[in-house]
């Protein structure tokens, strides 16, 4: 009886602590926001009242929800392709080292080109549609995945590779059963970077060239001098990025042998 009560108290404690963890950042963000408003005395059209922003969010929810779906598609497809490209290239580099010499300089170059330039060039070459936006997100996001995966695939303890050779494991077995699991913590770490970056870059690209998505809503807000709408989009984007980061982080901990020691 007492044990059960203890368990229930424990569960409630967990709920309370989760609620606290979620509430605290929300409170601190709005607290800071009001603090800036009252201390800086900036007018409302520079830093709108959070109330107005939330109101704008509610008023424009249909527009934001609809455009959010566009952003989600671009960011999601770009994120997936970043991984296909990043992990694919890393696998190629490890299995065929000469390919690394051939391709890596190009990959580094692409990574170092500011994506605004990539946007401009691709928009002229391929138009301003879905493919261009996804390509930009992919090109801006694949590099961390590539580098981390490559590092992970090569992070295998050489003594384990000796063991696999002694046991006469095939290259495929070594890859799937040793190299890939070894690289998971590295791949997961890359997802935390690429996941949020995909969203930010999708919005930035939309802002630059598109008539759809949250990025375009920002333009609409700016054109109409509706600061609240711009802030509302920022809020949605920030919350979404945070959720994506948290989900990746949670999944990462479940997948990550380096962090999970549950028996």
């Amino acid at each position: 009886m007492s044990e059960r009560r203890g368990k229930r108290a424990g569960a409630m404690g967990a709920v309370a602590s989760t609620a606290f963890k979620v509430l605290l950042p929300v409170l601190s963000i709005f607290g800071l926001w009001y603090l800036v408003i009252y201390t800086s005395e900036l007018p409302r059209f520079v830093i709108p009242d959070p109330k107005m922003v939330l109101l704008s969010l509610v008023e424009n929810r249909a527009l934001i929800a609809e455009q959010f779906m566009h952003t989600l598609k671009v960011a999601g497809a770009g994120f997936l392709l970043s991984n296909v490209l990043g992990i694919g290239l890393a696998m190629l580099f490890v299995s065929l080292p000469v390919s690394r010499n051939a391709i890596m300089p190009a990959a580094i170059t692409i990574r170092n080109v500011p994506y605004v330039i990539i946007v401009t060039v691709l928009a002229l070459a391929m138009g301003d549609g879905f493919a261009t936006k996804v390509t930009v997100v992919t090109l801006a996001g694949f590099f961390p995945v590539l580098v981390n995966t490559y590092r992970g695939l090569r992070a295998v303890d050489p003594i384990v590779l000796d063991r696999m050779r002694i046991l006469d494991a095939s290259l495929w077995e070594v890859f799937v059963k040793v190299r890939l699991p070894y690289s998971i913590p590295f791949i997961v770490a890359a997802q935390e970077i690429t996941g949020s970056a995909s969203i930010v870059i999708a919005i930035a690209v939309e802002w630059m060239i598109s008539r759809t998505g949250l990025g375009y809503v920002i333009n609409q807000g700016m054109m109409a001098y509706e600061g609240e709408l711009v802030y509302a989009v920022a809020l949605v984007a920030a919350v979404f990025s945070f959720v994506v980061y948290s989900v990746i982080h949670y999944l990462g901990q479940r997948l990550n042998w380096a962090e999970s020691n549950d028996p």
């Binding site: 605004v116 401009t120 928009a123 002229l124 070459a125 690209v205 802002w207 630059m208 060239i209 333009n219």
Partner: peptide, 13 residues
């Protein structure tokens, strides 16, 4: 148009 668009280039291509 928009922040990332240049109509000169768009007509040019």
């Amino acid at each position: 148009g928009g922040p990332g668009k240049n109509p000169i280039a768009i007509v040019g291509v």
